[in-house]
Design a protein around this nucleic acid. Structure first.
Length: 579
DNA sequence: AGGTAGAGCGCG
DNA sequence: AAAGCGCGCTCTACCT
């Protein structure tokens, strides 16, 4: 073995006869070693190689392979998720020599299937169950072949360095998502129950309606003079409102709040309570919180822009009202951090717009826009910026965006250009290289038909509207997608830093989380531009510093030499605070 | 009975 | 106040 370079890559897959196989490659992709073993030996084989050389683990699908390792207490430092990378490379415009990669194949899975819970289902690599419905191939041979195609596609890509960063960040995200699920969010069920009782009244018998909701519903029915009315049916509710002389186009909150009528206050109260009960009530607790942890399923790459989605329990929609329910274990702390105005800052960095960079230098970008004399109030700056990023055409946006265009010409040219490309059916690409999907054939046909001489006015108008809709999507895609890349890079750097924190001794372990994450500071929550780290109290300050350092590192990694900074709002608490 | 579309509302 | 982007979830209405 002397002199031989260590394995740089280790591809894992299913072998023959239900066994598991792996193939070690060196940095040039040359084969260095192979092994095949019983599936039950996977954990030991991975742990040994990870300790020896920390290769980059290449596998079909992180959500299929990694939870089993985590459940056994094994983490890996680096990965390459063939499924996620395939999606990126197959659509990337910067991949100019795709070879066979762009042809339809078993790897072309449009939507990430939901992950299995490690605890559920049969044992380790029961072969049938390890193939997730609609999933990708898990055989070693298929993985090796796909990995080879991906390496070739990457080697010939434009802006290859950036695309490689994206591939690494996406794969790190897949590891993080599995680790977040394994760790779970420390969840104070008693506090949750207290908040529910305070808002709704005592818990009713199974399936019953809480007292405060019954009371509000009765007030609404009385005020509308309709004793049988069901408040849960928007069509019926709307008809009842109309009968009572309340002229609203829908039953949505913001329409109702403008109305003066005795039915409105209890109705809004009812809607609020109904939402809390059905989305995050006692049934939710029983389904999703076990042993003091909420373990959501994160879906990396679940959004076309590269943002994560979630599946099960609505992890990314936990109402602010329930934030106090996130509570650190005894002797531990929650370190919460979110980026101030991530998307505008990303836009400033991408475009190199000097005026916008200057406005954001320091702390609050929106205040900076006010101080630069562009608008009068912070609120105007915020709505104007959202209009610029989303393509707002009405109200304050229509008034303010032209001023932003004048003062921040480079930034606005970037998003306006992305919108123009989208409107004519083109593809846009994020900073690191994720490309937007091509328009659907129905969209293209509608545009084509609208251009024919005999097109009906209605067809033309519909086509123009569809074009503008797509323009708003591509306008936002470049910014939202690049912000997602920044956030992945942030988390990847943070994860690496936290993995070097010293484990705490057995007595100080957080309980009752799993065997790996009970021992040291770990990521506990992620929401687009926000992370929460769960750490022993004595390491909380160090964790906070790691979060800040990781944000700086992400900025330097994506935008080397750019003066744009990414300031954080950060707090160290025992209980997460409602904002 | 079972699948889907839309309304409505939570998050960024 | 939303608006203009991206989601997931629950409920009802409506379809096959």
């Amino acid at each position: 073995m002397t002199g031989a370079p260590p394995a740089a890559w280790c591809v894992v897959g299913r072998g023959a006869d239900g066994r598991t196989a792996l193939l070690e490659l060196d940095a040039q992709g040359a084969r260095r070693g192979e092994a095949e073993f019983e599936a039950s030996q996977l954990v030991a084989e991975v742990a040994r190689r990870e300790a020896e050389s920390s290769p980059r683990w290449v596998w079909s699908d992180t959500a299929t392979w990694y939870p089993r390792l985590l459940a056994a207490g094994v983490t890996v430092s680096r990965g390459h998720d063939l499924r996620l990378v395939h999606v990126i490379l197959r659509h990337a415009q910067r991949v100019t020599q795709p070879g066979p990669l762009r042809a339809a194949s078993a790897w072309d899975v449009a939507i990430a299937p939901p992950a299995e819970t490690p605890a559920s289902g049969p044992t380790l690599f029961d072969l049938d169950s390890s193939t997730r419905p609609g999933g990708v191939p898990h055989d070693l041979a298929a993985a090796v072949a796909e990995f080879s195609r991906q390496r070739e596609a990457l080697a010939g890509a434009e802006q290859r360095g950036r695309l490689q960063l994206l591939v690494a960040a996406e794969s790190a995200g897949a590891l993080i998502a599995a680790e977040l699920q394994a760790a779970g969010i420390p969840w104070d069920v008693d506090e949750h129950d207290r908040i529910l009782r305070e808002a709704l009244g005592p818990r009713p018998p199974a399936g019953g309606i809480p007292a405060r909701m019954l009371e509000a519903a009765a007030s609404v029915r009385q005020a509308l003079g309709d004793p049988q009315l069901s408040l849960d049916s928007p069509p019926r509710l709307l008809r009842a409102l109309h009968r009572a002389g309340i002229d609203v186009p829908s039953t949505s909150q913001w329409e109702l709040t403008r109305i003066e009528h005795p039915a409105i206050e209890p109705l809004l109260r009812y809607k609020k309570m109904s939402r809390l009960l059905t989305a995050n009530g006692w049934a939710w607790i029983e389904e999703w919180v076990h042993e003091g942890r909420y373990r959501p399923v994160y879906v990396p790459g679940g959004v076309v822009t590269g943002r994560w989605a979630s599946s099960g329990g609505g992890a990314l929609q936990i109402p602010r009202q329930l934030r106090p329910v996130l509570r650190a274990d005894p002797g531990w702390r929650l370190i919460s951090a979110d980026v101030a105005q991530l998307e505008p800052r990303v836009l400033a960095a991408m475009s190199g717009d000097r005026a916008m960079i200057a406005a954001g230098a320091g702390k609050d970008l929106y205040s900076g826009i006010v101080e630069a004399g562009v608008v009068a109030t912070r609120q105007e700056a915020k709505f104007g910026m959202l209009g610029a990023l989303y393509g707002g055409t009405t109200g304050d946006s229509a008034r303010i965006v032209p001023r932003l265009r004048q003062r921040f010409p480079d930034a606005m040219a970037l998003v306006d250009g992305a919108a123009a490309v989208g409107e004519r059916g083109g593809t846009v690409t994020t900073w690191l290289g994720r490309s937007s999907p091509a328009p659907e054939s129905a969209w293209i046909q509608a545009q084509t038909r609208a251009n024919l001489p005999d097109a009906a006015p209605g067809e033309q108008e519909a086509a123009r509207r569809a074009a503008r809709d797509r323009g708003r999507f591509t306008r936002n895609f470049v910014v939202q997608g690049t912000a997602a890349e920044w956030a992945l890079s942030w988390m990847a750097a943070l994860r690496l830093a936290l993995s070097r924190f010293p484990p705490v001794d057995a007595a100080a372990r957080a309980t009752p989380s799993g065997p790996v994450f009970a021992r040291r500071a770990h990521l506990a929550f992620f929401l687009h531009d926000e992370v929460i780290v769960h750490a022993p109290a004595g390491q909380a300050e160090a964790a906070a510093a790691a979060i800040r350092d990781a944000a700086d590192a992400a900025g330097r990694l994506l935008f080397p030499g750019s003066p744009v900074d990414f300031p954080l709002d950060l707090s160290i608490t025992e209980r997460s605070a409602e904002k």
